Simulated scan of single mutants.
Amino acid sequence: MTTLAAAAVTTATFLGMEFVAWFMHKYVLHGALWFLHRSHHVRHPHRFERNDFFFLFYGSLSMLFIIYGSDAKDWRFWVGVGIAAYGTVYFFVHDVLIHGRLRFWRKSRNTYLRALNMAHKMHHKTTGRDGSEEFGMLWVSKRYFSLAARKPAPTNKMRRASSLNS
């Protein structure tokens, strides 16, 4: 497989994973597998949640594609790389930035990341199986871009000033 073809397969897989994530989230996680995903929508004192098992599914799928395609470095290998790349971005954006599961990246002044955060917070406004919106991870509706662009992110100076005034 040529380098260009490998890059194309990896990129197409990465982009396709956004649709897979949206579909699975909306119809499977908020459907038949709600009993696992529910843990992600309610506050709890635990470090891990049942919802984290989905990482094992996608990680295993990626690993199998990489293993079975590694000898020939054929399309299977590059599909596995695309799934792994999506999972890596998902971890940093969703688990670290949005949900703060690790404390090294709490806020962003980037309009896209702030819009993404707003959309995800809107998804979590409902704690039940029904009534949620914004099921994707990287795709953000226009209205959240508008909100993020209109409402500037607080700077360190603004945060310090507001804490002094309170």
Score class of each variant (00 low, 15 high):
57 F>M: 14
52 D>V: 12
101 R>W: 09
81 V>R: 02
87 G>N: 06
122 M>P: 09
149 A>I: 00
138 L>H: 02
104 F>M: 04
29 L>W: 09
59 G>F: 01
1 M>I: 12
15 L>F: 04
93 V>H: 10
30 H>Y: 07
71 D>K: 00
52 D>L: 08
73 K>R: 07
48 F>N: 13
150 R>A: 05
23 F>C: 15
164 L>H: 13
11 T>L: 08
133 E>A: 03
14 F>Q: 01
165 N>L: 15
19 F>V: 10
78 W>E: 01
130 D>F: 11
1 M>P: 08
114 R>T: 03
51 N>R: 05
94 H>K: 06
138 L>S: 03
24 M>P: 10
37 H>S: 00
54 F>E: 03
139 W>V: 04
23 F>P: 03
117 N>D: 12
151 K>F: 08
73 K>P: 06
142 K>N: 11
156 N>P: 12
125 K>D: 09
61 L>I: 14
128 G>W: 01
26 K>F: 12
108 S>M: 07
137 M>G: 09
76 R>H: 11
34 W>S: 08
102 L>V: 13
34 W>D: 06
94 H>N: 13
3 T>S: 14
30 H>N: 04
59 G>N: 06
90 Y>V: 10
70 S>T: 05
132 S>K: 09
66 I>W: 07
39 S>K: 03
77 F>C: 02
137 M>C: 13
140 V>N: 05
88 T>R: 07
99 H>T: 07
45 P>T: 12
130 D>Q: 15
22 W>V: 05
80 G>Q: 04
75 W>D: 09
152 P>Q: 06
77 F>P: 04
39 S>D: 08
25 H>P: 11
81 V>W: 02
144 Y>N: 02
155 T>H: 06
40 H>W: 12
38 R>G: 09
151 K>E: 10
9 V>R: 00
162 S>F: 00
10 T>K: 03
72 A>G: 02
64 L>R: 14
146 S>K: 07
139 W>G: 00
166 S>G: 15
57 F>N: 13
144 Y>C: 04
139 W>N: 02
114 R>Q: 03
144 Y>K: 02
10 T>H: 06
20 V>W: 00
100 G>T: 06
132 S>Y: 04
77 F>Y: 06
130 D>N: 14
64 L>K: 14
32 A>V: 15
